[in-house]
Amino acid sequence: MAPSSQRNEHAAAGEHPVYLRVIYPEPQPYRKVLHLMERLAAARAADRVTDSVLLLEHEPVITVGLKTRPEDFLLDPAEIRIRGIAVERTSRGGGPTYHGPGQLVLYPIVRLSTLPLARGGLLAALEEIARRTAADFGIRAFRRPGMPGIWTERGKLAAVGYRIRRDVSFHGLSFNVDCDLAPFSYINPCGLSGGEVTSVAVESACPPPLEEVRRCMVAHLDCLLGRRAWPVTPARLAEMLAGGSPLQG
């Protein structure tokens, strides 16, 4: 049986035919979203919720992955905080990175075994979403062997880092649309020696609005997840989690 017809069969049987898509209109504090992801991942692992994807921007923050070493900070964290950027520990793999307004982040809280993943797994799927989104705006972006993320000739356009607990992923992809790139120079972003980062705004003569980039990213996301989105507001998601109501799609 062809993979697509199998997928349709599952959809017809009501087994994960959709995922919850939650778009946050305002930049979000990192810690709040981290707590939400941890709760969502636990609920997903217990089958109290279907797969979900959070799409948002963060308030300025440098996040520290499990692999981060003190020498990855090129500027004292206290000095970074004075400049209005939070510094937060996270549960994802990888080194430090920067998030802030103008950068789209995509957090899939999904059961890996239900995804139509090819060789390369979730990492390759997230990189492909970023590569196709860049291509939509005429940007030639590519993978680099041994250097995860999506790159242009100028530098890194998108970064990937995640955690897997009980077959469920959280954390994910960040994609620089039109964000301040200076904070990347305060750290060795995920093992880079500083500097080599870029954004859609740097790469294109006529930078598109963030909403348009998000629209394209969502289309590639649906394609790679092999299912359709069920749009849910952030408030509704919070209600669903608090109420413990069944969230099966």
Binding site: G65, L66, K67, S91, R92, G93, G94, L122, L123, P148, V160, G161, Y162, R163, I164, R165, R166, C190, G191
Partner: peptide, 13 residues
Amino acid sequence: CVIESVKAAADVY
């Protein structure tokens, strides 16, 4: 235990 990779981390049960 936890296994870490270049870009991810996974718990082992």
